[in-house]
Amino acid sequence: MDLVIERLPEINQAMLETFAMIGVAIPVAVLLGTPLGIWLFVHAPDGLAPRPRSHAIVSGVVNMIRSFPFLILLIAIIPFTRFVVGTSVGTAAVIVPLTINAIPYFARLVEQNITQLGSGAVEASRAMGATRGQIIRNVLLVDAKPGLIGSITITTVSFISYSAMSGLVGGGGIGDLAIRYGYYRYETPTMIAAIVLMVLLVTLVQFAGTRLARASDRRVTA
């Protein structure tokens, strides 16, 4: 217990690093992944405006990034990371690959959410003379909102876990702390403390996400 109290400053620092990583990667992924996911939906071979060839290319790139194990992506894009944030070590250097990985991850979830909605309301909107943009804004995103909040939750939880691998480039974070003290230094109490914090963080994110999603969902009777 004394040991854990002794490590509190480090734990504190690690939590802040985790918040920084997730706090940048997830919002950027939502901001860029949402339009990408919509694009994939709209231009799919059976979508609103099929563009089979460019869809195949974009979809292929998305699959490629998604199939990289995070650890390998982290290393593979080091030159790009250095170009963006000027360094290849530290928290900032981890944020870049985390974000690069999160964008296609979230985009696929967006695409799936919208695809699941069914075509009824879209067809009605077309009959009402809506433009494609109007249909996306007023119908698809509205009905997909609860699902999208759920997807943000899933993405956040997944990337809290991915961020644990940041130690490879000295990125820090609470997961990295657990590995460094627990695995390399045999400080089991510190590792347990770090794990408890991660579990709490994930639980909190999941709880908030579920509550928000439910509050925004009018599709079922309350």
């Binding site: 003379g129 809506a130 009018r218």
Partner: peptide, 23 residues
Amino acid sequence: ALRRARHQIGMIFQGFNLVNNLS
């Protein structure tokens, strides 16, 4: 022009096709 013309043509469906997350 087709979209404008459609504003003059209402349509209803077997499955109602309402937006479920809107009042």
